[in-house]
Design a protein around this nucleic acid. Structure first.
Length: 838
DNA sequence: CTAGACTCCTA
DNA sequence: GTAGGAGTCTAGT
């Protein structure tokens, strides 16, 4: 028999009548060649390998012993067992100690290296060979393995009907490992299924859905038990965990407990900062609560959390990462079930733990309310998890870790099966520590500027309020849109009143603008309207920005720490909250003042770097529009070029209004244009807007083709994709309701554009810390992201290098995966504050 | 005290 | 026409 392989692990099989053939080198491998390679005959190869180890196969062996030494030892002592038994006789002290210390590891290595020769139900050799597939068997297999696209394609190829999808759940028809052990009759037809790794995934999915039993969770209150759980985590190689704290804001949260799960249903809770509620009876110095001191517990957990070989699984793990960072723990590597769900199912529903548990496990999680209900006295808002009784806290916290682990067992294999591993691994997972660092970095605010602005705005507001009251003749609540609407359209009988869905008069700024420009409106009413608009602008700036922002300054750092949601939008964008730093004013002079309050720390500068026209460039790439590509290549004014193409007006000396309209159309295209929307935006009649769109499509037929094909794909497949393969689902897009369908179609047309831009900046962000470090930049920190802009804080001396590096990373972010057909341009500038840097 | 409507800030 | 978050008012609990 000849074994055709160059795998050295198979050399142990060489014996009289069995040789190998290395097909790469066309070389025969017999007994002599094995001795040449391992220094021992084939029947001792296993002993040598178990000593020398093999890093490619993760066989540890004995440290310090390679093939040469191993062969020498085996030749002298005959085999591994004899050698280990007599290890004490070895002369070289280092070698002797290693052999004694790592004897067990050598024995484990032997089990890893030795080929199993007792596999039941081996397929007879003559049953192997190329033959036509049995459609039923093949398609059944592919369906069970959830190779959905393959099933469909191969069914098409064979002209067969694809089998119905299999619902994976306990007690379903999905084969469990037990059921799949091939019996006598089945041995020939299904052997591959039994040994397939995918079958393991199906089995894991089934295990993940086993019933929940909260009474089985352990409350860990001793050092010994915690060590035992840590050992379980090491043995499993991965575990799910969750931190319990006093706040949803990780910057102020105090650690109250830690839960972990190592297998479905096998989870524990480690209370760390529980205290009796102040209104409860206090039975002694320790409040009657037994728990491991925080410092001690964290010292035990830190090596596990930081161990590069142990995977830490969390649900929204960025939160836990931030909490642990406050205690000097840098947890890695990480997986996040929320982000897995986001990569797999964006658009199909929420990605919160409760949503996911219900969707994938059919399980309703214990609610926070249920735990907090056991805290005596106090208003609900003042109760914290740390006051909850340990038994309830354990049920809740351990269940969270348990649920997280089970979700991971279900979602992880889906990533590969649905070809979304790259999306998750390049656009989601690497962002977790990067964003966590940005959040903890925060940004410095000049409180004096904000308070000065606040007073200025307040004075303006008071003046305008008086003015309005004088014009109206009686007091009314300027902040009430309803009262304003009634005043304008009922009492004053002004024309052009529209009602909202609920029948209220509409009073938004755009409508009031048009009203003020209307010649039928009397002068004093016009003055009232304009005063109201000014009043609204100032009150908005004051309440949302100058008054609100200082309340977010963190007591410890003196900076503002926003929170970025990684899985909140459907398109892949980030969302910022508490406070939202992605909507700081910029358009008006007064608003822009607020940006001057965002400053660099002493001795540093802020750098703002933003992508120029990124979405239009992506549109030019995806839809492949020659005129747009050319304009971007030549660095032309893209809106002026559009206007020129559409209206035949030369760019030189083009009226501002013409360019403004073209700009609105360009934006409209990105948003999935409608005549109604464009008419609204430009305050022009709907048929005029429709005519613009018609002209546009005539000049740029590729855009219409892109919009039509995207719409079609969305209807056929239920999702659209970014250029990097991120999927955005629209499960309701085939609805019969034309209004709703139109909305979804526009969203589906916009999503690949907005989403691709989001992917590009995500890629830039993922690479940024490494690139800054590689460029020798020690002081540079990334602070903010505003969709197409990144803000950095950099020591003054490093500014030129930082500008160069940041620009390079951002402009090259699509590479090497996508070479866009248009250049990507980034403007970057450094200054003392955000307004000046932008 | 909470939820929804309305408004307005950003890309 | 896309994607968000937040402040205020108002009605209902």
């Amino acid at each position: 028999m000849t074994i055709v392989s160059s795998d050295k692990d198979l050399m142990q099989l060489v014996r009289p009548g069995v040789v190998m053939l290395d097909a790469m080198k066309s070389k025969k491998i017999g007994r002599d060649e094995v001795i040449e390679k391992f220094g021992v005959p084939p029947d001792r190869v296993v002993d040598v390998q178990s000593l020398a180890g093999d890093s490619t196969d993760n066989v540890p062996g004995v440290p310090g012993i390679g093939v040469k030494t191993a062969a020498e030892l085996i030749k002298e002592y005959a085999d591994l067992d004899a050698l280990l038994a007599r290890a004490g006789e070895i002369k070289q002290p280092k070698r002797r100690e290693k052999l004694i210390e790592f004897a067990d590891q050598a024995r484990v290595s032997r089990e890893l290296v030795r080929l199993k020769d007792d596999v039941p139900d081996m397929i007879p050799a003559d049953a192997l060979g190329v033959r036509d597939p049995d459609p039923g068997e093949l398609l059944g297999f592919l369906r069970v393995m959830e190779f959905n696209t393959l099933t469909r394609r191969i069914a098409e190829g064979l002209g067969a009907e694809p089998p119905a999808p299999v619902e994976v759940s306990v007690g379903s028809t999905v084969p469990t490992k037990a059921r799949m052990q091939p019996g006598a009759e089945k041995a020939k037809s299904e052997p591959v299924v039994a040994e397939s790794p995918a079958a393991g995934a199906a089995e894991a999915a089934a295990a993940a859905k086993a019933p929940f039993d909260r009474s089985k969770y352990e409350t860990v209150t001793t050092r010994e038990r915690l060590e035992a759980w840590i050992m379980k985590a090491y043995a499993a190689g991965r575990f799910a965990f969750d931190t319990e704290t006093t706040s949803i804001d990780p910057m102020v949260a105090e650690l109250v407990g830690f839960s972990m799960a190592v297998a479905p249903g096998e989870a524990c809770y480690v209370p760390l900062g529980h205290r009796a509620s102040s209104e409860a009876f206090d039975f002694g110095a320790h409040d009657g609560i037994v728990q491991i001191p925080v410092v001690e517990a964290l010292a035990l957990l830190k090596p596990l959390l930081e161990d590069p070989s142990i995977l830490k699984i969390g649900q929204n793990i960025k939160y836990d990462l931030n909490v642990l960072a406050q205690h000097g723990i840098n947890a890695a590597p990480l997986d996040d079930t929320m982000l897995m769900s986001y990569a797999l199912d964006a658009g199909k529903g929420g990605h919160g733990m409760d949503d996911l548990a219900m969707r994938h496990l059919g399980h309703a999680c214990m609610t926070f309310e249920q735990v907090i209900a056991h805290v005596p006295g106090k208003k609900k808002s003042e109760r914290t998890f740390g006051q909850a009784p340990l038994d309830k806290a354990t049920e809740y916290a351990a269940e969270d870790a348990d649920v997280t682990l089970r979700l991971w067992m279900i979602l992880k294999p889906r990533l590969a099966a649905e070809r979304l591993t790259t999306v998750y691994e390049t656009l989601e997972r690497p962002l977790i520590p990067v964003i966590a660092d940005m959040e903890r970095a925060g940004i410095l605010i000049d409180g004096a500027i904000l308070s000065r602005l606040s007073s200025t705005f307040a004075q303006g507001v008071a003046r305008l309020e008086e003015e309005v009251n004088r014009l109206v003749g009686h007091k009314f609540n300027l902040g009430s849109p309803r009262q304003l609407g009634e005043l304008l359209f009922e009492r004053l009988q002004l024309p052009g009143g529209k009602r909202t869905k609920s029948g209220q008069w509409e009073t938004r700024a755009g409508l009031l603008d048009d009203l003020a420009a209307n010649e039928e409106v009397p002068d004093d009413a016009r003055r009232l309207i304009n005063t109201m608009l000014e009043w609204r602008q100032l009150t908005k700036l004051r309440s949302t920005y100058t008054d609100a922002l200082p309340s977010y300054v963190h007591g410890g750092s003196g900076r503002i720490h926003t929170s970025y949601a990684l899985g909140a939008t459907t398109t892949g964008r980030l969302a910022s909250s508490e406070p939202n730093l992605q909507n700081i004013p910029i358009r008006t002079k007064e608003g822009r003042e607020i940006r001057t309050a965002f400053i660099a720390a002493p001795g540093k500068k802020l750098i703002s770097a933003d992508y120029s026209q990124i979405e239009l460039r992506i549109l030019a790439h995806i839809a492949d529009i020659p005129q747009l590509r050319k304009a971007f290549e030549e660095g032309l004014d893209i809106h002026a070029m559009t206007a020129s193409e559409m209206f035949g007006v030369p760019v030189e000396g083009m009226p501002g209004e013409v360019r403004r309209r073209a700009k609105a159309i360009n934006f409209g295209i990105i948003y999935g244009i409608s005549a109604f929307g464009l008419a609204n935006q430009l305050s022009i009649p709907k048929d005029e807007a429709a005519a613009y769109i018609k002209t546009y499509f005539e000049r740029f037929p590729g855009i219409r083709a892109y919009m039509d094909s995207t719409r079609k794909r969305a209807h056929e497949r239920g999702y659209v994709e970014t250029v990097f393969g991120r999927r955005i689902h629209y499960p309701e897009i085939n609805t019969k309701n034309p209004g709703v369908r139109g909305n979804l179609e526009r969203a589906a047309i916009n999503a690949p554009i907005q989403g691709s831009a989001a992917d590009i900046i995500r890629r830039a962000m993922a690479r940024m810390p490494g690139a800054l470090a590689a460029a020798g930049l020690k002081s540079a920190r990334m602070l903010l992201q505003v969709h197409d802009e990144l803000v950095f804080e950099v020591g003054e001396a490093e500014v030129p290098n930082a500008l160069r590096t940041v620009k390079k990373v951002m402009e090259g972010a699509a590479l090497p995966v996508i070479a866009l057909a248009v250049p990507i341009h980034v403007d970057a500038k450094a200054a003392d504050n955000w307004e000046a840097a932008h």
